[in-house]
């Protein structure tokens, strides 16, 4: 139970949050799906916080070294593929996850 070090930054961009087809799920499967989505939501929030922290560090470092104009360009992600990709994935993920539990709750209620 000891880490082998931080993951490579290129490995961090795989989206794993996909809503599954719930039409054929039993109540127990739906309850497990609710657990999974809650887990994904917290995980996504943590990832966003993590990335925000990295962006802040990036921002501070850049400000220290370059002009304000260049720093604004970095914040937009225009010259950083990783940050740009990660922000896009996480933005979409958060959008999906914030709505999914309500959709599931409605399904559970409909099934009595």
């Amino acid at each position: 139970m000891v880490s082998q070090g931080p993951a490579s930054i290129t490995q961090l961009t795989t989206p794993s949050h996909v809503l599954r087809d719930m039409s054929e799920m039993t109540v127990e499967e739906l309850r497990i799906e609710v657990l999974r989505l809650r887990d994904e939501l917290i995980g996504a929030q943590a990832e966003i916080g993590n990335l925000r922290g990295r962006l802040d560090v990036k921002h501070r470092n850049y400000l220290a070294l370059n002009s304000v104009h260049s720093a604004q360009r970095v914040l937009r992600g225009s010259d950083d593929d990783y940050v740009r990709a990660a922000r896009r994935v996480l933005g979409f993920t958060r959008w999906v996850l914030l709505r999914a539990p309500r959709q599931l709750a409605r399904k559970l209620l409909d099934r009595g």
């Binding site: 490579s8 490995q11 993590n50």
Partner: peptide, 11 residues
């Protein structure tokens, strides 16, 4: 490891 660091990273 990758999954754990993806979520909790620097902490």
């Amino acid at each position: 490891f990758v999954h754990l660091y993806q979520r909790w990273g620097d902490e």
